[in-house]
Structure formats: C-alpha cells, structure tokens
Design a protein around this nucleic acid. Structure first.
Lengths: 135, 135, 135, 135
DNA sequence: GTGGTCTAGACCACG
DNA sequence: GTGGTCTAGACCACC
C-alpha cells in the first residue's frame, strides 16, 4: 500500500504523507504555500482543478477543496465558481513578531535537542531559504 | 473567558493556546522541549506533578499525562510511579536531514509569504537560537 | 487583478463582487431590481444588451443571460428576440409576510451582532430606503 | 417527504429549509447568529453537540460541523476538541458602513418592489428588531 | 468542465 | 462522548 503520494505537474511538486500527523488538506495547503514562496507559483498561475489534483494525489475531492478554501480565506488564491483557482499576489497578513517566533520555536528547539549546533541549524535554514524566490 | 493560560513555576514558563491548532498535549510537550533546549530544564530537574501542572494550566489531567508519556517515549524524561518525572540527559534520536527540512519548510515558507526577506528570517532564527543553551 | 467590476451606463450603476458569496447572475439581477426600486429604471426603459453588459462587467455572457431570464420570469422585464430587454411596470408577486421577515432576519441579526443599536440599524435602513423612489 | 425541519431545544428554535437556496450549513450558522442577536444564546452558553444537532435537524454531521467552524472563524463561538462549543462574547468585526448597506440593499429593494411603502418596510424591520436583545 | 454542497459512514484525536 | 478528518459518490450551480 502506498502511503506517500507525489505529484509532479507543470514543474509542480506536491506531496502528501498519510503517516504525517497534520491533516492532508493542511499538507496540501502548506505545500502550495511553499511553492508560492519558491516562486514556482506566481500571481495569476492557475492551480490544478480540484478533481484533477485529488485524483493525482490519490485523495478525496473534498480534501483538496478544503485546502483551496483555506488558501482562499487567507487571500493567497482566488477561487471562482466555474473557473480554475488562480494565485493571488503574494500577500499574507503579517502576524506580529511574537507570533512568528512562537511558530518557529518548537521546530528549532527540537532541532537543538538532536544535538545540532546553532550554526548547523542556521545553515539548514539558510539552505532552505535559498530555495525560495529572492525577495 | 481566558483562553490562553500561562504557568510560571520554578522559573519555568509554559503556555497553552487553545486557539492554536496543535493539540494541547503537544504544545505542552514542545514547551518542555523548548525549556530543555534553553537549558532551563537540565538533566535531573524535576518536572511539576501531573496534577499540579494540569491545574496550573487549566487543562485536563490526561492531557498532561499524554505530554509526559510522549516525552518519556522519546527518552527525554524518566517517569516512575509515585515519583516526579525527571529530565534525562538531552538526547534525541537524530532524524535524517530531509526530515528536518520537511519540518522546517512550511514554517519558513509561511514566513516568506508575509513579506519578510531572507535575512530578516535568518535574523529571527538566530535571535531565537541565541535564547537557547549553547551547544 | 481586478475582482470588483463596476459599470456606469445611462446613469446606471451596476456592480459585481467576486468575493461575494452570492452568484454573480443573482448580484446582477438584484442590482437591476435595486435600480428599479430607486426609480432609475422605469417602465419602458431599455436594459443594456446582454453582450454589452457582459463585456462591461467582465463576466460571462451566460451569466447576464441568466440574470435577465430570472428577471423575466418574475415579470419585471420583457425579453424579446432581437430586441433589447425592456423594464415592465414594477409589479412583483407579493410574498407573504413571514417570507419577507425570513429574508430580512439574517441580515439584521448580523448587523445587531456588530454592536449596532436598534436605532442605528433603523437609521441605516431608513437612509437606504430614502434612496429609493417614493411609493 | 419532509423538507423543513425544526428543532426546539433548551428554548432554542432552529430551522433548516431544503428548498432554500442558501446552503444548509449557512442557514444553521445564520440561525445561531439570530439566536445570539435575540439574546437566547448568551456568552458561555453551550451549543448542542454536532452529532446531536445533526440528528435533530435531520442533516449530516459534517454540515453542522461546517456551520460551527464558520461561527468559530468569525469568533462568535469557541470550539475545542472534546468539549461542547460555547458561545463567545457577542463581538463581530464591524465591517464598514458601505458593506453593511450593500448587504441590506438587495433585500430592501425587493421589498420595495412588492409594493410595500417605506413606512411599511420600516415597520417590518422595527418589528423584527424588537425580537432581538436590547443593546 | 469547474467548484460547491451534501450524505452516509468510518476512523482518529482529544479531554 | 466530543469534535476532526477522510472517503466515495451523488447532485447542483456556475461559467
């Protein structure tokens, strides 16, 4: 049985992991956010049709619909009846700094507990950021 | 009605946020990991009693028990009947690099989408790491 | 990208809002009803051609056609092949009182929940009615 | 076949109408908003369990879950895993005046087209408001 | 053809 | 026992 499905389309690269604790719709939403951050999905880009992506990822239509709805509520994409969803300009309400740090802290703490040094962690982060569109 | 509870004990500082989508037991476990990474909980430190912490945070007793169980399973604390849980040495099975990056990516992508530049994000990360014990 | 389109023609003022959850054809139909209620479209007035209005509002031709069809079914306009649609006398089957109230209630409740007082809400309603033709 | 289901519980009075064009989850959400506006659901009140309400209204669990989620996103109720949903203080982000009027206009225009006079409409509105909690 | 909604029912996570 | 998520599949609304 396959537990990780990957879809490569139009140079896109989305993955869902059924073992992951995060709900699938959230994995999809975050995956799309990552693609936007990487500049592989830019303003005006069309997203795959709900049913298409669902079939490609081997998940239910509603799961993808939920992911798209979440992105739409955050203003990252526009969803209109009868039309493909399109990527909006990359704007995201900027939470305050303490929220950002709160989001960051647990992941970093866990990294630190694996024995990585600060500079190693910084290196990892920098490497990851390098994959994203310059800004 | 208070929906964010914070507990300050023995110079500890734990917070649960009911608005947060992560389960509370996980927030507690991660909070404790963060305290360990910061060196505020070191090998041999006693953790608060389950009932105590539950009462202080205003959450269910089982929730704390689950958090401690998770930490124990990861080998980060020792739990023995009738005794307070104590912090083990900081060891944590080191996941492979791709797992770490997978954990990091969504948070970083979301930060990037708020319009922060790479260097600003790196600054945030460094600042956060500075709060943790050197290694 | 423009997601709200407005058309000003013959002193008309029609708007479609793609963020709105109501279907566009319904927004158009209701907009025309509002214009009729305001007396800006009176018996015998010609409506814009379907193609023209569709182009001006940046929506699909079928969307406008559906709106006109709905208005025609309610007897508010006449549509004849090859001719512009024309406004009929303002007659509309009068729904019963409980239906009217049912229609009104959700909007008013939501207004009340924003903290507006009764008199403030009444003021808003009166102001809105003042904009409509006396009857 | 029954097309309108009503549930009367704890002095609550919720109705879903399958003929109505609005989605059921929205009818439920608006019905609850109306109950809050009427002061029949006040801060701290527990809402019926998702499954309970679904059974009582004869609709699917997910439909009610969606309604509750919407209310939670608007900050009108708090939903926490394992606990009943509870009503928050009645706060609702106050949209600007023009938005409020936009919401009001179509309903009023339609009323005007049924031949009701301004004062009759104002009377209807006042009557409806009288049913709501004083503010 | 596209997204939206709903159902019935299963299984999981949480308190 | 509570809410959360997911599936499979149906039907509708819209463009």
């Amino acid at each position: 049985m396959v537990y990780v499905n990957t879809i490569h389309m139009k140079a896109l690269f989305l993955t869902v992991d059924h073992e992951d604790r995060r709900p699938i719709y959230q994995q999809v939403a975050e995956g799309i956010k990552a693609l936007m951050a990487q500049g592989r999905l830019t303003e005006g880009s069309e997203l795959p049709a709900v049913r298409q992506l669902a079939a490609d990822l081997g998940v239910n239509l509603n799961t993808i619909a939920t992911a798209y709805r979440e992105l739409a509520e955050e203003g990252l994409i526009y969803v209109r009846h009868g039309l493909r969803a399109v990527v909006a300009g990359r704007t995201l309400a900027q939470p305050n700094r303490s929220d950002l740090r709160k989001r960051l802290r647990p992941a970093l703490a866990e990294l630190a507990l694996t024995g990585l040094s600060r500079s190693q962690i910084l290196g990892l982060v920098a490497e990851e950021l390098r994959g994203m569109a310059k800004k």
